[in-house]
């Protein structure tokens, strides 16, 4: 009887969350349930949830799950890819990118490409407007974005998010990002990572970035290029059913026209069973 009531309560609360137009994440509703029924078996809650979360179809008039807000929440957002260029300050550089999925935001405005000059410090000047920018920016969404995994294993790291800053400094140093790029990356992503106690993190570098995130076309061709994308999932426990294989990185040498791009995405509805 208690189980049936728990199920009922779960759906009720889920519905309540939906009409308040604010899909709460799984652990919050779990927390809510276990706050009320301290003797509820936790495994039951996660089972109920797993069969429900993929495509919630709630009764009621509002098809809220078709709204932009729901869409954005349930499709991985490629957040803040920023592109830095370091050049001679004179040569015009044409940059265009082909993202998987849709582009939702660019800055400066993207008109079938950006045209800039870049100096050695990374200051960009847009050719058409003469305005200065520290980097080029875009965001997008891609419903197919997910971790790259093997049959029983996955490359990446499980981290305690207390150490996010140190962890990212270490990885980004190995990759060869400079102080500015590193700080921009860390100050953007650590506040997101620390929302859960643990996280699984995987980096898509260079070729993997091209295949899964976005391809860059730059004329003239850069002499050195580095692209880093971080995928992560919040975890409640630092354990995984998959074998975690730590990723290794190679340091990139900077010379000539240099291009660095980084971005990241939270993978919420992953099929991986951590």
């Amino acid at each position: 009887m208690k189980i049936i009531f728990a199920i009922f309560l779960f759906f009720t609360t889920t519905f309540v969350f939906s009409i308040s137009n604010d899909a709460r994440i799984l652990n919050e509703s779990n927390q809510f349930l276990s706050d009320i029924f301290l003797d509820i078996d936790d495994s039951l809650i996660s089972e109920i949830h797993e069969c429900d979360i993929e495509k919630p179809k709630y009764p009621g008039k509002k098809p809220w799950y078709r709204t932009k807000r729901w869409y954005n929440k349930h499709h991985p957002q490629k957040r803040k890819p920023v592109i830095y260029l370091y050049g001679d300050g004179v040569t015009e550089i044409a940059i265009s990118f082909k993202p998987k999925g849709e582009t939702t935001y660019t800055y400066p405005e993207y008109n079938n490409g950006w045209r800039v000059t870049a100096n050695a410090f990374g200051n960009l000047k847009e050719v058409s407007t003469g305005k200065n920018y520290p980097y080029l920016f875009w965001e997008g969404i891609d419903k197919n974005l997910d971790f790259i995994r093997g049959e029983n294993s996955i490359e990446g790291f499980i981290i305690n998010t207390d150490s996010s800053s140190l962890f990212l400094e270490n990885i980004l140093n190995q990759i060869g990002l400079n102080e500015k790029e590193k700080t921009d990356f860390i100050t953007f992503w650590v506040p997101e990572l620390i929302k859960s106690e643990f996280a699984f993190v995987q980096f898509l570098i260079d070729e993997q970035y091209n295949q899964n995130i976005s391809e860059l076309e730059i004329i003239p061709k850069p002499a050195s290029e580095k692209k880093v994308f971080m995928l992560y999932s919040p975890l409640e426990k630092p354990t995984s059913k998959l074998k975690i294989i730590p990723q290794a990185f190679t340091f990139f040498q900077r010379h000539g026209l240099i291009v660095v791009e980084w971005g990241g995405a939270k993978i919420e509805n992953t099929n991986l069973n951590f």
Binding site: R69, T104, Y105, N132, Y133, P134, Y135, F137, E139
Partner: peptide, 18 residues
Amino acid sequence: NSTEMTDFITFWGPIIER
């Protein structure tokens, strides 16, 4: 200045435009 403005706009623009 342009750096401060870009940092601001690329952070807040996507939030405001929701």
